[in-house]
Design a binder for these strands. Structure first.
Lengths: 333, 333
DNA sequence: CTGTTAGCGCATTCAC
DNA sequence: GTGAATGCGCTAACAG
């Protein structure tokens, strides 16, 4: 099987020109006559020549691949975000390494290491599970970084955020208006910045509404359906008369609803539930889930656009955080 | 900012050894004394040295990255599949390029081109939207290929399949037992092999059950929620008395249920609905969705294991197709 | 407009 | 057990 891929040298030989001419012609660089360019291109085509991006990256000291790192691809929020981001990159002819960390800080670090070993220079990190200092250190390996929902800063770091505090204030205000007084919070991972922000917003709104903040009403949980289910059970144990639960995100909220149903609570009559993100399934579960809507594809597209701008050296105007919008459905209706 | 990354040469200089010794020590190859290896490693560590995988791949003519291509990352089936597959690869120290094709054959081709340009040698393709001949041709660029739910064969191709026919027969049999006689089918993309197999199974089971196959009861649709919604409307137009709809996959089925609800049909009293895959949300939507369960993480893990075996040259026993299992829930209960 | 020289960071293949 | 020479496929920086 002499299935050796043809290289730029093969094309040059077949076309009777130098390697550099082929390089210029194939990459659409100036400095080649029209006739030569067309001839070289058709020969390249005939030979099935495809440039080797690794070699080209090595020689030019600049990669055409990017990376995106997030905790859980099975969470539609991150899947949709990544899809939008990679689509945006692809439109520019850039490939992206998608790295799933399974909620593990260790694996997040190893994802960064892998990306660095591929000499990826620009990455998006969504929902980091690392402490700001560890994250900042790890990020030094990259030229351009966009952080989604994380406030860590640095000379090479841009931030794209959702206004979590504002969202939570909307949610709590809505529940207060409904007459809820025992509002619990199913918090996400302690290390998640958005989890912290959401918790802070919850607390602020509670106090602003004249209710006491009671840390016993805050239950930490893993950010998946099962984690939400367990959180609901824990909350009911601490306060059997709880009348509302706000969850860190939609999949957690869906789990909370399951846990509530397991315990025989009616939603929203006994306990109202509100999530965050508005993943597509929020509207489809039973009961349908009230949530704080975020335009997830826009978020992903924005993050990648900012990364591309960073890469291009385009100056960036500081960005306002995306404003979530409360969508009231059955779970709090 | 003299932030140049340290290279193997820097480590060699600092350690007072040759480049080759560093290479061997860092990669754990034999031919280095224990003392030398430890010394080199600690110096490499201190310098923050990370091997450049592109350069290493270029020199060794073998890549440590793999690829996975599928139509829609927002579909939990593919997201979970990809997550399992990448996790399995990561455990072996291999990175993977995740490529989303947005259901477009053109973009699928361009995904293959990108992967080839990165000189990726092993890929998984799930749910290809290309004709067998075009797919076969495109796949020649790769040394090792695993096809999920696609019967295209080739010298370098292994197949991992779900037994779609068997699944559909289970579904139809179940509906017949319930007394359904006007069973429609919301078919996926014509170019999808599993869509074809599922349709064939539906047809076989129908005829086997003594019912006529009526092609007017088969409505093609895009494999997303909206596609399912429109398919339901189309089916109701063609046969207002339809009493069951089987859908190509779960997200389509969820859309079908929405369409049915929009038209005022009760599920399952008026129309029963059955999906395929058992994505996590199938159990959570209203009404909960009967479906053909597939162990999606196992499927992804298996596909990657087969790819790794191919890569290693390990001989493979021919694999039986994964058997889906009918899960009866409210939508057909 | 086109070609030549040098080298990106690393591994292979030999020497010693 | 260790090192020197050579080249992977490509591009930057010049030369013509």
């Amino acid at each position: 099987m002499g299935k050796r891929r043809s290289t730029i040298a093969d094309v040059a030989r077949a076309a009777g020109v130098s390697i550099m001419t082929v390089s210029r012609a194939v990459n659409g660089r100036p400095g080649v006559g029209d006739g030569t360019r067309d001839k070289v291109r058709s020969i390249a085509e005939a030979l099935g020549y495809r440039p080797d991006r690794r070699a080209s990256a090595l020689a030019s000291r600049s990669s055409t691949a990017l990376g995106i790192v997030f905790p859980d691809m099975a969470n539609p929020f991150f899947a949709i975000l990544a899809k939008a981001a990679t689509d945006t990159a692809r439109a520019r002819g850039l490939n992206v390494f998608v790295m799933n960390t399974d909620e593990s800080p260790t694996r997040e670090l190893s994802a960064f290491a892998s990306l660095h070993e591929e000499r990826i220079e620009g990455i998006i990190v969504a929902g980091s599970r690392l402490s700001p200092s560890k994250l900042g250190t790890a990020l030094e390996a990259f030229a351009d970084v966009v952080l989604v929902n994380n406030s860590t800063t640095g000379p090479n770091i841009a931030n794209v955020d959702v206004d979590d505090r504002s969202g939570m204030i909307q949610a709590v205000t809505h529940l207060l208006a409904k007459g809820c007084t025992r509002i619990a919070f199913a918090a996400g991972p302690r290390v998640s910045v958005s989890a912290q922000r959401r918790l802070a917003g919850y607390r602020t709104a509670l106090v602003g509404g004249g209710l006491a903040f009671d840390r016993r009403r805050v239950v930490k949980c893993t950010p998946d359906i099962e984690g939400g289910r367990r959180a609901a059970a824990a909350i009911l144990e601490l306060d059997p008369d709880v009348d509302a639960i706000i969850a860190y995100n939609d999949i957690t909220a869906i789990g909370v609803m399951r846990g509530l149903a397991d315990a025989g609570r009616r939603i929203p009559e006994d306990v109202a539930v509100i999530g965050t993100d508005d993943i597509p399934y929020a509207a489809l579960v039973r009961p349908s889930l009230s949530t704080l809507r975020v335009d997830i594809p826009l978020l992903g597209h924005t993050a990648m656009s900012v990364l591309l701008a960073l890469r291009d050296g385009t100056p960036l105007a500081p960005m306002a955080a995306l404003e979530p919008e409360l969508v009231v459905r059955e779970s709090s209706g």
